[in-house]
Design a protein around this nucleic acid. Structure first.
Ligand SMILES: [Zn+2]
Ligand SMILES: [Zn+2]
Ligand SMILES: [Zn+2]
Ligand SMILES: [Zn+2]
Lengths: 137, 137
DNA sequence: TCACATATGTAATAATATAACACTTAGAGG
DNA sequence: CCTCTAAGTGTTATATTATTACATATGTGA
């Protein structure tokens, strides 16, 4: 602790707004919409959309959450090392979302990339499915 | 013409609004935003967002155009038999969009699906890239 | 002709997201 | 400790994207 090296606070330091938004997404585990987050965190002191969007932007940038583009929603990252890549299944019927494990995906995507000679900087994959419980009913 | 069989008008019959929206997207070849389409077609008689969105919805349903979710834009389908599946590359830098040929993709995606034991009803794939001209500069 | 499904026109409003600006805080470095 | 700077905050206003509601019209098939 008392050594001279700077120890730069870097990664662990989320701000208050970032923290409470992250906690909400963490506790929810489901995709949430920005304005729902705003409403939920009014009591924590969030008053304007911009406060929410700024926190969300930062958390996306840090790879701690993802945006699911086709439903304008945000969800906690359930993997490690996604960077800004996203891959989800979304149930057509009930809307349930699951993040695809990136170890399951890496091979498949890189084959895709190789086959198409793409130089991909990041990707966004949304697979619409019928989830188990919806398939039964 | 005068025979008794119904010859059901089915596929070729787009309505006026659907036709002019499709033509615009066809002639453009680029992704266009709904309100840009509205502005462009004011002179053709389109007056309200709803007229545009209704035409777009129908054309998406018919598979003639696609929505690119992460940029809220619509583009003419450049394949056949996409159904409602979409796969695009999007340049990070200049925004240029290209549809990935589905013959290039089918294998890769079905491997992905097999590996992940998914029962996919449709997919939405967005690959961010650096396009050739952006890579040079 | 009648019924029905589909499309239209129009106004209002909802939902999602950003711009602009003044101010504050936290950390780096002297 | 002081000062500089980058990042974050709070707030108001506004832009962008999309849908609801409702009355009317049009085409097709029986
Ligand atoms: Zn993730
Ligand atoms: Zn389901
Ligand atoms: Zn297509
Ligand atoms: Zn480019």
């Amino acid at each position: 602790m008392s050594s001279t090296h700077t120890h730069s606070k870097k990664s662990q330091s989320l701000t208050k707004n970032q923290r409470i938004v992250l906690d909400l997404l963490q506790n929810s585990g489901e995709p949430l919409k920005a304005y729902f987050i705003l409403d939920s965190l009014k009591k924590e002191g969030l008053n304007s959309p911009l406060q929410v969007y700024r926190a969300l932007d930062k958390l996306v940038e840090l790879g701690k959450i993802h945006k699911i583009e086709s439903i304008n929603s945000f969800i906690i990252c359930n993997n490690s090392n996604c960077a800004k890549n996203t891959a989800f299944t979304i149930c057509e019927r009930c809307g349930k979302v699951k993040e695809i494990k990136n170890r399951d995906l890496t091979g498949g995507v890189s084959d895709l990339v190789k086959d198409n000679q793409l130089e991909i900087t990041r990707y966004n994959l949304e697979f619409y499915v019928l989830c188990k419980s919806c398939k039964i009913n």
